[in-house]
Design a protein around this nucleic acid. Structure first.
Lengths: 209, 209
DNA sequence: TAGATTGTTAATCGATTAACAATC
DNA sequence: TAGATTGTTAATCGATTAACAATC
């Protein structure tokens, strides 16, 4: 269906466009030119137009872009025009932070279940969602059509559980463990490596001019 | 001091090299060639050699790289050969996750204080670190030579507090709020935008071939 | 020494920016 | 219509990969 390959640089920027357009909508702005948006976002207008034209002509000469229309179109491109069933594995602080951040649910990422290996948490609830033990995992994924699994557990466990959930048929893993997961190519992995982020920050402190 | 500009693509990869070298050390590997490392990390050997040679010739022809030496040198480049005083603002789940993740402290990121605006948390402790109220913030930063502030608070508060801590003289902000912080150029900002990460994941689900 | 592998230059590839005709 | 601004092509810039002489 899609003809040309979209570069990952473009994909990285899409959610940021989406965020800015959402904020413009909230402040009642109805149209915006690539030039105005470029000033706000601190990227070139040329880049904005190039990026958007990977997906279609969303603007109009002499007018600019309709904010709400563009917002919705980017939402579709990002696949957040529909719901995604999600699972959190690891009911520690990081897991709880994701569970309690209601914006994800608003965007259609529905948390269907929480898993942990600590028996003390069995049948306790976080935001009305029951914490389950690992032996239920595979069945739960299949019965609830889980697409996304967030792994907020230590790296050794993450490597092992990643295989289990991949075998159970999830489409994507949101990996917070400090390791790479080596999985078949049809399983999508999106990494959030906080320690690497902190090291980049440290690099910039050490090497700023 | 530094002559040529290091590209951000290289900097993004450095912590990952560091992580792999650390794992090699743990498993007792003493030397490694760019070719072997490339197979493990799934990047080209050429890229590894180019990246490292931005900073110096760390290898030896016919031999490869000494794992421990390279690990330490990259540590120096990343600025984690010394301690950084750090502060967490926002004692919610995300803040607690950072506070309780002991690896950061091991790498020299010392959490000197925790701040929150909830009076109920006043003088409570998280991992033996007292939670303080916002009115103490500026003085505390100055008295404790705080270099890094992690912001794990909502976006409106983050924008405002970012200015306060920037004025108080911190070098860098580790920003977990779902917004960009517009600060003077001499304040480093490293963003962790979880919602953008989740949208990229969603994009990949929607557009995989 | 011969074999291995780096450091580095050159070639290629891809991403960003500039320019401008099309057009609202 | 005249002015504004897109969509898109061309030019530039930068990053990645390939190749190989240097050298351990």
């Amino acid at each position: 269906m899609e003809e040309k390959k979209i570069s990952s640089a473009v994909i990285r920027r899409l959610p940021r466009y989406y965020r800015y357009l959402g904020e413009l909508m909230e402040t009642g702005v109805q149209r915006i030119s690539s030039k105005e948006l470029s000033a706000r976002m601190k990227v070139t207008a040329s880049q904005i137009r190039q990026d958007l034209n990977n997906f279609g002509g969303f603007g109009q000469q002499g007018y600019g872009y309709n904010v709400q229309y563009l917002y919705e179109e980017i939402g579709k491109i990002l696949g957040i025009d529909r719901e995604h069933n999600m699972l959190i594995i690891g009911a520690g602080n990081l897991g709880k932070a994701i569970i309690n951040y209601s914006d994800f649910e608003k965007r259609g990422f529905i948390i269907k279940g929480i898993f942990d290996n600590n028996p003390k948490l069995k049948e306790t609830k976080i935001r009305d969602i029951e914490v389950r033990m690992m032996d239920e995992l595979t069945d739960f994924i299949r019965e609830n059509a889980i697409e996304i699994v967030a792994l907020t557990i230590p790296k050794e466990a993450a490597k092992q559980i990643a295989r289990v959930v991949a075998d159970a048929g999830v489409k994507a893993i949101w990996n917070f463990a400090h390791t790479d997961l080596n999985l078949p190519d049809d399983v999508i992995v999106e990494n959030v490596h906080l320690s690497e982020s902190l090291m980049r920050l440290s690099y910039t402190i050490a090497n700023r001019n």
